[in-house]
Measured scan of single mutants.
Amino acid sequence: DETGKELVLVLYDYQEKSPREVTIKKGDILTLLNSTNKDWWKIEVNDRQGFVPAAYLKKLD
């Protein structure tokens, strides 16, 4: 059920640097789980959840 889920576009590649982070690729469109922290957003990638720098993402309307 995708209702109410926010999507984000990945602006730059990011390689995870800790187990709490996930790797993302430029151009991916992913589900945003939590954006309350202005610097690190929690997203879902391939059934994995983790954090990436918010500056690497853009919210889609």
Rank of each mutant, 00 (worst) to 15 (best):
A54T: 04
D39P: 02
A54S: 14
K17E: 08
R48A: 06
G4Q: 12
L9W: 06
E21H: 04
L57D: 01
N34G: 06
D61K: 14
G4T: 13
I29Y: 05
L33S: 03
P19V: 09
K25A: 09
W40Q: 03
L9G: 03
V10Y: 01
R48F: 06
D1K: 05
K59I: 11
N46R: 12
T3S: 14
E16V: 07
D1L: 13
T23K: 04
P19R: 07
W41M: 02
E21N: 04
K58R: 12
K58Q: 13
K59T: 06
I24N: 00
Y56K: 05
F51E: 04
L57S: 00
I29S: 02
F51C: 09
S18D: 11
E44C: 09
W40G: 01
K25D: 03
K26E: 07
D47A: 08
R20W: 15
V45R: 11
P53I: 02
Q49A: 10
Y56W: 06
V10D: 00
V8W: 06
P53T: 01
W41D: 00
L9M: 09
G27I: 01
K58I: 12
I24K: 00
K59W: 06
A54I: 04
K42P: 01
P53R: 03
E21R: 04
T36C: 12
E2A: 13
L7N: 05
G4S: 15
E2L: 12
D61I: 13
V52H: 01
G50V: 08
L33R: 04
E16D: 05
R20E: 10
D28W: 14
D1V: 15
V22A: 08
T31C: 09
E44Q: 14
E16I: 10
P19M: 08
Y14D: 01
E21G: 10
Q49S: 10
K59C: 05
D13F: 04
G27P: 01
D61C: 11
Y14C: 01
V52L: 01
L33Q: 03
Q15N: 12
L11S: 02
L11A: 03
T31L: 14
L33T: 05
L11D: 01
K25L: 08
E21C: 04
K38D: 10
V8G: 02
F51I: 08
N34K: 07
K25H: 11
V52R: 01
V45G: 07
T3V: 11
Y14R: 05
S18H: 12
K58N: 07
P19Q: 10
N34C: 10
P53Q: 03
L33N: 03
T23A: 04
W41F: 04
F51H: 06
I29R: 05
T36E: 12
D28S: 11
V45P: 00
K25W: 12
A54P: 05
W40N: 02
N34Q: 10
Q49K: 11
S35M: 07
Y14S: 01
D13V: 02
K58F: 12
D39L: 13
I24P: 00
W41T: 02
Y14A: 00
L30P: 03
L7S: 08
N34Y: 06
V22D: 01
L57W: 01
T23Q: 04
P19E: 10
L30R: 10
L32H: 01
L11E: 04
A54C: 07
K58E: 12
V10R: 00
L32A: 03
K58P: 01
W41C: 02
I43S: 00
G27E: 02
G4P: 12
T23E: 03
K17M: 10
R20M: 15
I24L: 05
W40K: 02
S35R: 08
Q49D: 07
S18L: 08
T3Q: 14
D1G: 15
I24V: 15
F51M: 07
P19H: 10
L30Y: 10
W40A: 02
Q15S: 10
Y56R: 04
E16P: 09
R20Q: 13
L32N: 01
A55I: 15
S35K: 08
L60Y: 08
V45F: 15
L7H: 10
D47M: 10
I43H: 00
W40T: 02
K59H: 07
N46T: 08
L57R: 00
K5P: 13
A54L: 02
G50W: 05
V45A: 11
L7A: 06
K26N: 05
L33V: 11
L30C: 12
L11H: 03
Y12N: 10
D39G: 09
D13M: 03
S18A: 11
K26T: 07
G4V: 15
P19I: 09
V22T: 04
K59E: 05
T36H: 11
W41V: 02
K25G: 05
Y12G: 10
V45W: 09
E21Q: 11
K42H: 08
L60M: 08
E16T: 07
E44L: 10
L33G: 01
N46I: 09
W41G: 00
V52C: 05
E2K: 07
T23P: 03
L30M: 05
L32S: 02
E44H: 07
P53Y: 03
K17A: 11
V10E: 00
N46Q: 15
E16K: 11
N37C: 09
K38T: 12
Q15C: 10
G50L: 06
L60H: 06
